[in-house]
Amino acid sequence: MSSFTKYCKIDSLELSAESVRDIQSINDKLELGDILATFAVAVPFVEIFSKKMKPHKRIETIAQYDWDVFADALLAVPTITRNRVNMIAESRAFETNGKERQFWSCVEKASR
């Protein structure tokens, strides 16, 4: 169960099959975002340390690496994931009613 289902807890909430499917889709997106962030962190280290080179050249390579682009890419992953979650939640909030709409509205607000 995702943290948003705990954060947006609504007593006696019964979710439709579509909502259950979309919660699984959100969980998949969150997991994929985690995997993407892990790989993004590994890229510069693989690029720098997988090549055979003299120590002074490696230090030079580290110094010349575009760490700003690396940081921007790494910081973009959670934003992209959050936007994907928000799109699903916004759609479900529009398509549902009652307690189910309350739940999706909460998820939508939490993912802004």
Rank of each mutant, 00 (worst) to 15 (best):
A37P: 00
K52M: 02
T61H: 06
D34W: 01
H56K: 10
F39H: 14
F49R: 08
D66C: 09
K54L: 15
D66K: 10
K51I: 08
E60V: 00
A63S: 12
Y65K: 00
M53T: 11
S50R: 07
T38D: 04
I35D: 11
K54E: 15
D66H: 11
I48A: 06
K51E: 10
A42R: 03
I48Q: 06
G33L: 04
L30S: 00
A40L: 15
E60G: 02
T61C: 02
T61P: 00
A40M: 12
Q64W: 00
K54S: 15
P44T: 06
A40R: 04
I59N: 10
R58S: 08
M53G: 02
F39L: 12
I59L: 13
A40T: 11
A40F: 14
A40C: 14
V46C: 03
P44F: 08
V43G: 10
R58I: 01
D34C: 01
A37G: 12
Q64L: 01
P55E: 06
E60H: 03
K29F: 10
V46T: 02
S50E: 03
K52L: 06
E47C: 07
E47T: 04
L30Q: 11
I59H: 12
A40G: 14
Q64G: 04
K52A: 09
L30W: 10
Q64E: 05
S50W: 06
S50Y: 01
S50T: 02
M53C: 08
Q64Y: 00
L30D: 13
Q64K: 05
P44C: 09
T61K: 05
F49S: 08
I62C: 09
R58E: 09
S50H: 04
E31S: 05
K51Q: 13
F49L: 09
L32R: 02
I35R: 09
H56W: 08
I59F: 13
D34Q: 13
M53N: 05
Y65F: 12
I48E: 11
D34G: 14
A63R: 10
D34Y: 03
D34M: 12
F39N: 02
V46A: 06
V41C: 06
I59G: 04
K51Y: 08
P44D: 14
L30N: 08
H56P: 04
H56M: 10
A37S: 15
F49C: 03
K29V: 11
A63K: 07
I62E: 11
Y65I: 00
